[in-house]
Design a protein around this nucleic acid. Sequence first.
DNA 1: TAATATATGTTGTAAAAACAACAGAAATGA
DNA 2: TCATTTCTGTTGTTTTTACAACATATATTA
Lengths: 235, 235
Amino acid sequence: MERKCYNEASKCLNVDNMLARCVLFSGVKPEEIRGLMTCMDGQVLHYSKGEYLLRAGDKIDSACILLTGGVIAEQVDYWGNRDILQEIRPGELFAVNYAINEGEVVPSNVVAIEDSCVLMIDADRLVKVCDRGCACHNRVKDNLILMLSTRNRALTQKLRHLSKRSTREKLISYLTEASINAGKKEFDIRLDRQQLADYLAVDRSAMSSELSRMKNEGMLDYKKNHFTLYVRAEE
Amino acid sequence: MERKCYNEASKCLNVDNMLARCVLFSGVKPEEIRGLMTCMDGQVLHYSKGEYLLRAGDKIDSACILLTGGVIAEQVDYWGNRDILQEIRPGELFAVNYAINEGEVVPSNVVAIEDSCVLMIDADRLVKVCDRGCACHNRVKDNLILMLSTRNRALTQKLRHLSKRSTREKLISYLTEASINAGKKEFDIRLDRQQLADYLAVDRSAMSSELSRMKNEGMLDYKKNHFTLYVRAEE
DNA sequence: TAATATATGTTGTAAAAACAACAGAAATGA
DNA sequence: TCATTTCTGTTGTTTTTACAACATATATTA
């Protein structure tokens, strides 16, 4: 695992444009990125395939952006069962929540599945606006707030569905939300059946059965991704 | 529902000290709060018991802090079934994620269960640091990042457990995390059985049975809130 | 268009969870 | 200390879900 500062590393990597397309740097011009990296002291670390970037239990002080390669977050339980939580692709920001809140430990391993370059940005430098008071640093901070807030919404939403005990209740929660978002009782959903089942953490075929039971009961109608909800008198 | 600016309303409410204890205003002196409220144009709204602060589907541009009284967030599905998601107490910040991301609709109703006073802060004014460049405004922004990040961690963590399909897997996920946090295989948990069951969205007695099954299999031992995990060879 | 692949729905069976009812342990308080 | 309440564990029954295997519908592509 070798370490370089961003401005040196970027000579070979040529990732300025890629970074400029990240939400975190939205509104920052590619040519401003290098200045930003100086003031945030961005460091680029190289990991070989199979090497661990983070291990469950670590405490960290830097947020990470994957520049090249690929890494995954994996959860390994006490008894050794492994579960892949997430695949992280170039341009994605990760570990930021644990870097900002330094006391908290990282809950999962992060491991390189290809040779990878990772940009590390110290959370304090990311959050505290530097003395030079550069406008783009403030912009990054605003972007960070937006990203955290967006993620928060998505998580809250999913959690509302997953907190329901039965498949039917999960479906009702999901479909109600889709209907609220659409602003009407007829709407399309973005997920296919398998994706929806995965999202709601249920079996696909069992979910299909439940949907058709609900259709028989007159609660709703659907064809593929198009749903219609019906209020009806209790029989 | 009547509306006043903060500095006027606070004459009767006397909530400067309470606000100063909120995480959002941590590090801001009580006497600075009023200046901050001027520059953020904080408005205080009064709602009578039963009145709706927000309805599912609304778009909003202000974050809310409950000053006095009590409100709840409730989810009502398309078929009219009501579910209380959250009780909000004085000092708590809510709706901030939907205010920051203006395009998104609020997914649940918020209704006053007592006569309540609510401080509304326009999200743009909260996030954009004002021209006067007051230090405490920047401090509030830092606090907001910390709050969003903390909440993000809690949600991610809960979601990791709830994404598991079976009670056993949920328990394994929860206990593994507790063990990682403790840094050893022996630890106390903060929740009692009913709270843990609610957190994992399973039935308490079924969860108790599962725990004792796991104990019989030699995976772990426990007494009340004290748990010990055992690695053991497959029999 | 035919052939193939993919997505969705259906059914019966096995497994798991919820539910209900109760017993015993621990905590609380008079 | 005893009575009462709260918490936890246990058991049997019912309900729900997962699972597997297959049927049908839809989409894709040769």
